[in-house]
Structures are given as structure tokens and as C-alpha cells.
Amino acid sequence: MAEERELQIHPIMQESMQHNARIVSNIRALTASLFGVAAGTLGLESFPGFLFYLFGTLIISLLIYAFRAEGKPNMYFYKPLADLWMGDLFGGLMSFVLTWTLFYGLVKA
């Protein structure tokens, strides 16, 4: 209730939120595919591979935080923990697995 009231007093623009979320999602998808290429070429297997992905996403989130959000995530995201740091992990994971499998197969053969 208090949050609802807070939103009425200081409203959030839906369009801007969606735009920001879209940008984060695009960045994640692109970098996830690149990480997949790297993991596949390096020949990483199951656990190290996923660890590599998580580590890479963390670095990307840090970069977004530092360069795009200018260190003030509250200005750009309503719930920065959910949107900036953990935003669209699943979609990124899928791209990662796709390119990882592809390049792993290419390199190993």
C-alpha cells in the first residue's frame, strides 16, 4: 500500500522503464553469445563453462553500472537489483548455450 501511494506521488514512466530493460536485454544477449564463442573455443566443459558465463555476466553488469548507469542505478531502474544485476539472465543463458555448443563442437572435432 505504501509503495502504491509512493508510485502515485512520484510516478514512473512505463516507456522509459521498458526502454532501459530492452537495452539491458540486448546487451546481455549479445555479450552472452560472445561469451559462448569464447567458452566453446576454450573447450570448457560443464561446470567451468557455466561459471565462466556467470563471471562474464557479472563483469558486464559492472560495466553497465559504471558506464551506462553512471553509478546511479536508482535513476534508471526502479528495482536495480532485479533489473540491472539479474536482468534477463535466462535469455542470455540460452544464447550462451547455443554459441557454446556450436563452437565446442567446431573446435573439438
Binding site: N26, A29, A32, G92, M94, S95, T99
Partner: peptide
Amino acid sequence: SWYFLTLFGLQPVYNFILGS
């Protein structure tokens, strides 16, 4: 299985090409 992988993994690519 490659079909399934692409089914899930190409969604970001669709977002790129076709807009969100």
C-alpha cells in the same frame, strides 16, 4: 537437440532483427 537449442536460443536474435 540442435533444433531445440536454436528454438530457445534464437529469441534474442529475433529481438535484434525484428524489434522487440
